[in-house]
Protein backbone atom coordinates (compact mmCIF):
# COMPACT_ATOMS: atom_id res chain seq x y z
CA UNK A 1 0.00 0.00 0.00
CA UNK A 2 1.21 3.39 -0.87
CA UNK A 3 0.53 5.35 2.24
CA UNK A 4 1.61 8.71 1.02
CA UNK A 5 -0.52 8.96 -2.13
CA UNK A 6 -2.48 11.83 -0.69
CA UNK A 7 0.45 13.64 0.66
CA UNK A 8 2.27 14.70 -2.42
CA UNK A 9 5.55 16.44 -2.56
CA UNK A 10 4.06 19.88 -2.44
CA UNK A 11 2.70 19.19 0.98
CA UNK A 12 6.05 17.88 2.03
CA UNK A 13 7.53 21.08 0.76
CA UNK A 14 5.17 23.13 2.83
CA UNK A 15 6.19 21.23 5.91
CA UNK A 16 9.74 22.00 5.04
CA UNK A 17 8.97 25.68 4.72
CA UNK A 18 9.49 25.91 8.38
CA UNK A 19 12.80 24.22 7.91
CA UNK A 20 14.39 26.58 5.39
CA UNK A 21 17.63 24.78 5.00
CA UNK A 22 16.03 21.40 4.37
CA UNK A 23 14.08 22.56 1.38
CA UNK A 24 16.98 24.22 -0.26
CA UNK A 25 19.18 21.20 -0.04
CA UNK A 26 16.44 19.01 -1.49
CA UNK A 27 16.18 21.23 -4.52
CA UNK A 28 19.90 21.54 -4.83
CA UNK A 29 20.24 17.77 -4.74
CA UNK A 30 17.60 17.40 -7.42
CA UNK A 31 19.25 19.84 -9.78
CA UNK A 32 22.58 18.15 -9.55
CA UNK A 33 21.60 14.53 -9.81
CA UNK A 34 18.94 14.68 -12.49
CA UNK A 35 20.63 13.74 -15.73
CA UNK A 36 18.20 15.64 -17.89
CA UNK A 37 18.80 18.84 -16.06
CA UNK A 38 22.50 18.31 -16.26
CA UNK A 39 22.69 17.76 -19.99
CA UNK A 40 20.08 20.39 -20.69
CA UNK A 41 22.02 22.95 -18.77
CA UNK A 42 25.26 21.88 -20.38
CA UNK A 43 23.96 22.31 -23.91
CA UNK A 44 22.34 25.60 -23.08
CA UNK A 45 25.48 26.78 -21.40
CA UNK A 46 27.61 25.95 -24.42
CA UNK A 47 25.23 27.82 -26.67
CA UNK A 48 25.16 30.83 -24.39
CA UNK A 49 28.92 30.78 -24.18
CA UNK A 50 29.38 30.75 -27.95
CA UNK A 51 26.90 33.47 -28.35
CA UNK A 52 28.13 35.79 -25.65
CA UNK A 53 31.77 35.37 -26.53
CA UNK A 54 31.12 35.44 -30.24
CA UNK A 55 34.14 37.53 -31.21
CA UNK A 56 36.37 34.94 -29.56
CA UNK A 57 34.70 32.00 -31.20
CA UNK A 58 34.76 33.39 -34.71
CA UNK A 59 37.00 36.04 -36.17
CA UNK A 60 34.80 36.90 -39.12
CA UNK A 61 32.60 39.94 -39.34
CA UNK A 62 28.98 38.93 -39.74
CA UNK A 63 28.29 41.98 -41.83
CA UNK A 64 31.18 41.74 -44.25
CA UNK A 65 29.94 41.12 -47.77
CA UNK A 66 31.93 39.53 -50.55
CA UNK A 67 29.80 39.06 -53.60
CA UNK A 68 32.47 37.11 -55.41
CA UNK A 69 31.96 34.37 -52.83
CA UNK A 70 28.16 34.24 -52.82
CA UNK A 71 26.55 30.98 -51.84
CA UNK A 72 29.67 28.90 -51.41
CA UNK A 73 28.83 25.45 -50.05
CA UNK A 74 29.92 24.11 -46.66
CA UNK A 75 33.48 22.95 -46.36
CA UNK A 76 32.84 19.26 -46.89
CA UNK A 77 31.19 19.78 -50.28
CA UNK A 78 32.57 20.52 -53.72
CA UNK A 79 33.45 24.15 -53.92
CA UNK A 80 33.57 24.64 -50.20
CA UNK A 81 36.66 25.74 -48.37
CA UNK A 82 38.01 25.66 -44.85
CA UNK A 83 37.59 29.41 -44.79
CA UNK A 84 33.87 29.10 -44.56
CA UNK A 85 33.05 26.01 -42.55
CA UNK A 86 29.33 26.16 -43.11
CA UNK A 87 29.47 28.07 -46.37
CA UNK A 88 28.31 31.57 -47.16
CA UNK A 89 24.98 33.27 -47.63
CA UNK A 90 23.59 35.17 -50.60
CA UNK A 91 25.91 38.15 -49.98
CA UNK A 92 29.05 36.13 -49.38
CA UNK A 93 28.96 36.47 -45.60
CA UNK A 94 30.22 33.58 -43.49
CA UNK A 95 27.23 31.54 -42.41
CA UNK A 96 28.60 30.16 -39.15
CA UNK A 97 29.51 33.64 -37.96
CA UNK A 98 26.10 34.99 -38.81
CA UNK A 99 24.44 32.15 -36.99
CA UNK A 100 26.48 32.79 -33.85
CA UNK A 101 25.75 36.51 -33.90
CA UNK A 102 22.16 35.79 -34.72
CA UNK A 103 21.99 33.74 -31.59
CA UNK A 104 22.92 36.81 -29.61
CA UNK A 105 19.89 38.64 -30.82
CA UNK A 106 17.48 35.78 -30.31
CA UNK A 107 18.68 34.86 -26.84
CA UNK A 108 18.82 38.43 -25.64
CA UNK A 109 15.34 39.05 -27.00
CA UNK A 110 14.08 35.96 -25.22
CA UNK A 111 15.65 36.90 -21.93
CA UNK A 112 14.47 40.49 -21.95
CA UNK A 113 10.92 39.73 -22.99
CA UNK A 114 10.54 36.99 -20.44
CA UNK A 115 11.91 39.13 -17.65
CA UNK A 116 9.47 41.92 -18.39
CA UNK A 117 6.57 39.51 -18.79
CA UNK A 118 7.50 37.76 -15.58
CA UNK A 119 7.64 40.93 -13.53
CA UNK A 120 4.42 42.36 -14.88
CA UNK A 121 2.60 39.05 -14.80
CA UNK A 122 3.67 38.06 -11.33
CA UNK A 123 2.63 41.42 -9.97
CA UNK A 124 -0.80 41.14 -11.51
CA UNK A 125 -1.16 37.55 -10.46
CA UNK A 126 -0.24 38.22 -6.87
CA UNK A 127 -2.58 41.14 -6.56
CA UNK A 128 -5.56 39.50 -8.17
CA UNK A 129 -5.02 36.16 -6.51
CA UNK A 130 -4.63 37.42 -3.02
CA UNK A 131 -7.10 40.26 -2.93
CA UNK A 132 -9.69 39.05 -5.34
CA UNK A 133 -12.83 41.07 -5.69
CA UNK A 134 -13.53 43.87 -8.11
CA UNK A 135 -9.89 44.45 -8.92
CA UNK A 136 -9.51 40.86 -9.84
CA UNK A 137 -12.46 41.01 -12.21
CA UNK A 138 -11.10 43.94 -14.13
CA UNK A 139 -7.68 42.45 -14.40
CA UNK A 140 -8.99 39.10 -15.54
CA UNK A 141 -11.10 40.83 -18.20
CA UNK A 142 -7.98 42.49 -19.50
CA UNK A 143 -6.37 39.09 -19.67
CA UNK A 144 -9.41 37.78 -21.53
CA UNK A 145 -9.28 40.53 -24.12
CA UNK A 146 -5.60 39.94 -24.47
CA UNK A 147 -6.16 36.26 -25.10
CA UNK A 148 -9.07 36.90 -27.43
CA UNK A 149 -7.03 39.05 -29.74
CA UNK A 150 -5.52 37.08 -32.58
CA UNK A 151 -1.83 37.36 -31.99
CA UNK A 152 -0.81 37.07 -35.62
CA UNK A 153 -2.91 39.97 -36.70
CA UNK A 154 -1.72 42.10 -33.84
CA UNK A 155 1.87 41.30 -34.61
CA UNK A 156 1.60 41.94 -38.31
CA UNK A 157 -0.27 45.18 -37.78
CA UNK A 158 2.14 46.51 -35.22
CA UNK A 159 5.18 45.49 -37.19
CA UNK A 160 3.79 47.28 -40.20
CA UNK A 161 3.33 50.47 -38.23
CA UNK A 162 6.48 50.52 -36.20
CA UNK A 163 9.90 49.49 -37.27
CA UNK A 164 10.67 46.07 -35.85
CA UNK A 165 13.49 47.08 -33.55
CA UNK A 166 14.64 45.02 -30.61
CA UNK A 167 12.50 46.90 -28.10
CA UNK A 168 9.35 46.81 -30.20
CA UNK A 169 9.71 43.05 -30.56
CA UNK A 170 10.45 42.74 -26.88
CA UNK A 171 7.37 44.71 -25.96
CA UNK A 172 5.24 42.57 -28.26
CA UNK A 173 6.47 39.32 -26.74
CA UNK A 174 6.08 40.59 -23.20
CA UNK A 175 2.55 41.57 -24.13
CA UNK A 176 1.91 38.07 -25.40
CA UNK A 177 3.39 36.29 -22.42
CA UNK A 178 2.46 38.15 -19.28
CA UNK A 179 -1.06 36.68 -19.00
CA UNK A 180 0.48 33.23 -18.71
CA UNK A 181 2.46 34.25 -15.63
CA UNK A 182 -0.47 36.13 -14.15
CA UNK A 183 -2.67 33.07 -14.48
CA UNK A 184 -0.19 30.64 -12.97
CA UNK A 185 0.62 32.92 -10.08
CA UNK A 186 -3.05 33.52 -9.45
CA UNK A 187 -3.95 29.86 -9.49
CA UNK A 188 -1.14 28.90 -7.12
CA UNK A 189 -2.16 31.72 -4.84
CA UNK A 190 -5.76 30.62 -4.88
CA UNK A 191 -4.85 27.14 -3.86
CA UNK A 192 -2.33 28.23 -1.28
CA UNK A 193 -4.56 30.91 0.16
CA UNK A 194 -6.50 28.42 2.16
CA UNK A 195 -3.60 26.18 3.04
CA UNK A 196 -3.08 25.42 6.66
CA UNK A 197 0.21 27.12 7.13
CA UNK A 198 -1.01 30.37 5.62
CA UNK A 199 -4.03 30.49 7.85
CA UNK A 200 -1.79 29.71 10.73
CA UNK A 201 0.58 32.54 9.90
CA UNK A 202 -2.32 34.92 9.49
CA UNK A 203 -3.78 33.99 12.82
CA UNK A 204 -0.40 34.67 14.35
CA UNK A 205 -0.64 38.21 13.02
CA UNK A 206 1.62 38.07 9.97
CA UNK A 207 0.87 40.92 7.57
CA UNK A 208 -0.50 40.16 4.09
CA UNK A 209 2.62 41.48 2.50
CA UNK A 210 4.83 39.18 4.49
CA UNK A 211 2.70 36.19 3.71
CA UNK A 212 2.71 36.84 0.00
CA UNK A 213 6.36 37.48 -0.30
CA UNK A 214 7.84 34.96 2.01
CA UNK A 215 5.58 32.00 2.09
CA UNK A 216 3.68 31.93 -1.12
CA UNK A 217 6.22 33.42 -3.47
CA UNK A 218 8.60 30.60 -2.71
CA UNK A 219 6.15 28.10 -4.10
CA UNK A 220 5.88 30.06 -7.25
CA UNK A 221 9.56 29.97 -8.10
CA UNK A 222 9.78 26.52 -9.60
CA UNK A 223 6.74 27.12 -11.80
CA UNK A 224 8.06 30.49 -12.83
CA UNK A 225 11.41 29.07 -13.74
CA UNK A 226 9.70 26.42 -15.78
CA UNK A 227 7.48 28.86 -17.59
CA UNK A 228 10.39 31.17 -18.30
CA UNK A 229 12.47 28.52 -19.92
CA UNK A 230 9.56 27.38 -22.07
CA UNK A 231 8.75 30.94 -23.01
CA UNK A 232 12.30 31.73 -24.04
CA UNK A 233 12.05 28.75 -26.35
CA UNK A 234 8.77 30.07 -27.75
CA UNK A 235 10.22 33.49 -28.32
CA UNK A 236 13.21 32.11 -30.16
CA UNK A 237 10.96 30.18 -32.51
CA UNK A 238 8.45 32.97 -32.97
CA UNK A 239 11.17 35.50 -33.74
CA UNK A 240 12.49 33.09 -36.32
CA UNK A 241 9.04 32.79 -37.82
CA UNK A 242 8.59 36.53 -38.02
CA UNK A 243 12.01 37.03 -39.53
CA UNK A 244 11.26 34.32 -42.02
CA UNK A 245 8.12 35.99 -43.34
CA UNK A 246 9.93 39.28 -43.49
CA UNK A 247 8.58 41.01 -40.41
CA UNK A 248 11.63 40.79 -38.22
CA UNK A 249 14.65 42.97 -37.75
CA UNK A 250 15.72 44.59 -40.97
CA UNK A 251 18.94 43.69 -42.74
CA UNK A 252 21.84 43.48 -42.53
CA UNK A 253 21.69 42.44 -38.87
CA UNK A 254 21.59 38.67 -38.62
CA UNK A 255 18.89 36.87 -36.70
CA UNK A 256 18.12 33.21 -37.08
CA UNK A 257 14.86 34.11 -38.72
CA UNK A 258 16.14 36.48 -41.31
CA UNK A 259 19.11 34.34 -42.27
CA UNK A 260 16.57 31.71 -43.24
CA UNK A 261 14.43 34.31 -44.98
CA UNK A 262 17.40 35.32 -47.12
CA UNK A 263 17.98 31.72 -48.04
CA UNK A 264 14.40 30.92 -48.83
CA UNK A 265 14.78 31.49 -52.57
CA UNK A 266 17.75 29.19 -52.74
CA UNK A 267 16.26 26.23 -50.96
CA UNK A 268 16.97 23.77 -53.74
CA UNK A 269 20.25 25.29 -54.84
CA UNK A 270 21.97 26.42 -51.64
CA UNK A 271 20.33 24.29 -49.00
CA UNK A 272 22.83 25.20 -46.27
CA UNK A 273 21.57 28.76 -45.79
CA UNK A 274 18.18 27.53 -44.69
CA UNK A 275 19.32 24.39 -42.92
CA UNK A 276 21.97 25.48 -40.46
CA UNK A 277 20.11 28.26 -38.63
CA UNK A 278 17.34 25.72 -38.12
CA UNK A 279 19.85 23.29 -36.67
CA UNK A 280 21.12 26.03 -34.36
CA UNK A 281 17.58 26.67 -33.14
CA UNK A 282 17.09 22.96 -32.67
CA UNK A 283 20.18 22.52 -30.55
CA UNK A 284 19.44 25.55 -28.40
CA UNK A 285 15.86 24.62 -27.86
CA UNK A 286 16.81 21.04 -27.18
CA UNK A 287 18.97 22.17 -24.30
CA UNK A 288 16.30 24.50 -22.97
CA UNK A 289 13.51 21.97 -23.29
CA UNK A 290 15.54 19.17 -21.75
CA UNK A 291 16.18 21.41 -18.80
CA UNK A 292 12.57 22.52 -18.63
CA UNK A 293 11.06 19.08 -19.01
CA UNK A 294 13.04 17.68 -16.12
CA UNK A 295 12.35 20.71 -14.03
CA UNK A 296 8.68 20.10 -14.69
CA UNK A 297 8.97 16.69 -13.12
CA UNK A 298 10.06 18.39 -9.96
CA UNK A 299 7.23 20.88 -10.04
CA UNK A 300 4.61 18.34 -10.91
CA UNK A 301 5.58 15.29 -8.97
CA UNK A 302 3.18 12.99 -10.76
CA UNK A 303 5.64 12.83 -13.60
CA UNK A 304 8.57 12.18 -11.40
CA UNK A 305 10.61 9.11 -12.04
CA UNK A 306 10.96 6.96 -9.04
CA UNK A 307 14.59 6.41 -8.31
Amino acid sequence: MNLDTNIDNNTLLKKDNINFKGKLSRWYRFLLTNKGIFFGSLITFIVIFCVVFAPLVTTYDPLKQDITKRLTPPMWQDGGSIEHILGTDSMGRDLLTRIIYGGRFSLLLGLTSVLIALMVGTLFGLITGYYGGFLENILMRIVDIQLGFPFIILVVIILSIAEPTFWVLSALFSLLLWPGYARVVRSILLSEKSAAYVLAAKSLGASDFRIIIIYIARNIIPSMLLMSTMDIATIIITEAMLGFVGLGTPPPAPTWGNIMADGKNYISTAWWVITFPGVAIWITLFGINLFGDNLQQFVNPKLRKKY
Partner: peptide, 17 residues
Protein backbone atom coordinates in the same frame (compact mmCIF):
# COMPACT_ATOMS: atom_id res chain seq x y z
CA UNK B 1 10.44 46.00 -51.73
CA UNK B 2 11.57 42.49 -50.87
CA UNK B 3 10.40 39.99 -53.41
CA UNK B 4 9.16 42.54 -55.92
CA UNK B 5 12.03 41.83 -58.30
CA UNK B 6 14.40 38.87 -58.10
CA UNK B 7 17.25 39.47 -55.67
CA UNK B 8 16.51 43.17 -55.27
CA UNK B 9 17.24 42.96 -51.58
CA UNK B 10 20.65 41.49 -52.30
CA UNK B 11 21.88 44.16 -54.64
CA UNK B 12 20.18 46.70 -52.42
CA UNK B 13 22.43 45.54 -49.60
CA UNK B 14 25.43 45.65 -51.89
CA UNK B 15 24.65 49.20 -53.01
CA UNK B 16 24.30 50.27 -49.41
CA UNK B 17 27.71 48.84 -48.69
Amino acid sequence: AVGAWPKCKEYGEYIVE
